[in-house]
Amino acid sequence: MQKLSIITLFLIVLTLSSCSSIELFKERTEIKPYKEYTSFVIVNKEIGSSSFKDELIDAKVANELEVKMKELGLTYDSKSPDLVIRYSSNEDPRQKEVYNNQYPMWGMRVWDPWMFDPRFMGRQNMVSTKNYELLQLIVDFIDPKQDKMLMTITAVSEASGTKAKNKNLIKSAEKVVGAYKVHMKEN
């Protein structure tokens, strides 16, 4: 019985965690890491530049990047950092078509003896549009000593509301730092 509840709990967690997909793209690698970086600075935070329309979201992303980099063992140093982090965003409002099923649970209602359904009378094309926002968090990791790009990581996700947007951008920042960690261990 306990084994069944553990499996059920695992499936629920797996389902909930897979609802929001965030794709990462590693781009523009000019140099390979030639040393272990020990300190960093976030340029946007130092100069007061906001990359998002909403300043609260911008502050949350900057904070998440800082916290996750500190968790990797790096220290925040605004005077002489080993690594410079700069981020920007692209918030693109979009629409997509949603096709509603005119024949719920019966497929094409082939075997349904009651073919008449007043809910769908005269509705041949049941298409609606859904508004959403395509979010891109673009993070540049720059080596200030060589003045070259260590790498650029872009996290792409979709959000249909402010709450989902906050959640996706914080997860995106977390995944970007995770990708940075993997990149540093590969080389």
Rank of each mutant, 00 (worst) to 15 (best):
V13W: 00
T15E: 00
L16I: 06
C19S: 05
C19Y: 00
I22L: 11
K26I: 03
E27W: 02
R28H: 05
R28V: 04
E30H: 10
E30N: 12
I31T: 05
P33A: 11
P33R: 10
E36M: 09
T38R: 15
T38G: 12
T38A: 10
F40Q: 08
F40I: 08
V41A: 12
V41H: 01
V43N: 13
K45C: 03
S49N: 12
S51G: 15
S51Q: 13
F52C: 04
K53W: 01
D54K: 15
L56A: 13
D58C: 07
D58H: 10
K60G: 02
K60D: 07
V61N: 10
E64G: 04
L65I: 08
L65C: 07
L65K: 10
E66C: 06
E66W: 02
V67E: 09
K68D: 11
M69N: 07
M69L: 14
K70L: 09
K70W: 01
E71L: 15
G73A: 04
G73M: 04
G73H: 02
T75G: 13
T75I: 14
S80G: 08
D82L: 06
V84C: 11
V84Y: 14
I85Y: 02
I85H: 06
I85P: 07
R86I: 04
R86S: 13
Y87A: 08
S88W: 05
S88G: 14
S88I: 03
N90Y: 04
E91Q: 14
E91Y: 02
P93L: 01
R94H: 04
R94G: 01
